[in-house]
């Protein structure tokens, strides 16, 4: 993959070249419009984390880690474990990421990943309650973007879900109303579903899947669709300025569904597990 420009602003000839290529159903890296880049996924990359996964999609590389602690439930959900997602766009990953507290992009990433997982009810949060109303598991999902060549949403969701699905957290038991750690024993995080997200870019009237950084700099707008299962949408986010024509939405959703099925298949291949096995 060759680098072009290197700065966040697009050049005019780049925009023209990209559109010229798309008219011939081709993209700068040789892909066809609905093709995503190659995905590699590894789990348990950080032993100290309770669960972890590293996902690369083309030149974008994400590491997600899970840490489980014990805490009080939120007042409005006394019988549910807590889950919180944090994401950082590390300055290592791109010229346009500055060191410092998460900016609006990092916060958006965290919240979209959170919605994909939470709204799809991917984790059976009720099963991680130790003492109802008092002690529950607190799951921290932390996402780091290490290298950025466009589209950090899809690999972040994949990494977070893969990390959750392969995590081993401490086992607790309650005796006489007191919470005790069971030394040396671990449990899986109970998962019901494996959500995935698909990022689409819109270029004039053409849709592309999984844009690279160069494509992102020239796109008219982009859209992320989170799928909890093959047929259920769990999250949608239009994450860039620009016009999204009403008429294109149905086509976009259909394209994203096809891609989501491929992503989920890849996820299941790697983690060697699926919710069907649980029931």
């Amino acid at each position: 993959m060759y680098r072009i420009g290197g700065k966040p602003y697009p050049t005019k000839i780049l925009h023209d070249k990209l559109y010229e290529l798309i008219l011939h159903e081709k993209r700068l890296d040789g892909r066809s419009p609905y093709e995503s880049r190659q995905i590699t996924l590894q789990t348990n990359v950080i032993e100290k984390a309770d669960g972890s996964a590293q996902v690369s999609i083309g030149g974008t590389k994400i590491i997600a880690g899970i840490k489980a602690e014990v805490g009080s439930p939120y007042p409005d959900t006394p019988n549910q474990a807590n889950m919180t997602v944090n994401a950082e766009l590390l300055p290592l990953a791109s010229r346009s990421f500055e060191p410092g507290p998460p900016d609006e992009r990092a916060i958006e990433l965290a919240r979209v990943v959170d919605r994909c997982i939470r709204e799809s009810k991917a984790i059976d949060l009720e099963k991680l309650v130790y003492i109802p109303g008092q002690k529950v598991a607190v799951l921290y999902i932390d996402i780091y973007v290490l290298d950025y060549d466009g589209n950090y949403f899809d690999p972040s969701v994949l990494a977070a879900v893969a990390a959750l699905a392969t995590a081993k957290i401490k086992k607790f038991e309650v005796t006489n109303g007191i919470l005790k750690l069971v030394e040396g024993e671990y449990i899986n995080i109970p998962m019901r579903r494996l959500p995935v997200s698909v990022t689409l870019g819109l270029f004039m009237d053409k849709i592309i899947v999984d844009p690279t950084a160069i494509e992102e700099s020239a796109l008219d707008t982009s859209l992320i669709v989170g799928w909890s299962t093959e047929d259920e949408i769990a999250a949608i986010q239009k994450n860039t300025p620009g016009r999204l024509p009403f008429n294109i939405l149905e086509e976009a959703i259909n394209i994203s569904r096809e891609v989501s099925i491929r992503y989920r298949k890849k996820l299941i291949e790697n983690i060697g597990w699926s919710p069907e096995l649980m029931s």
Binding site: S52, I63, G65, K67, L90, D142
Partner: peptide, 18 residues
Amino acid sequence: NCRYHMATFSVADRKPAG
């Protein structure tokens, strides 16, 4: 400019972000 930074999950007890 330099930045030494640890991931939250890099240590046994989760380190706060930032």
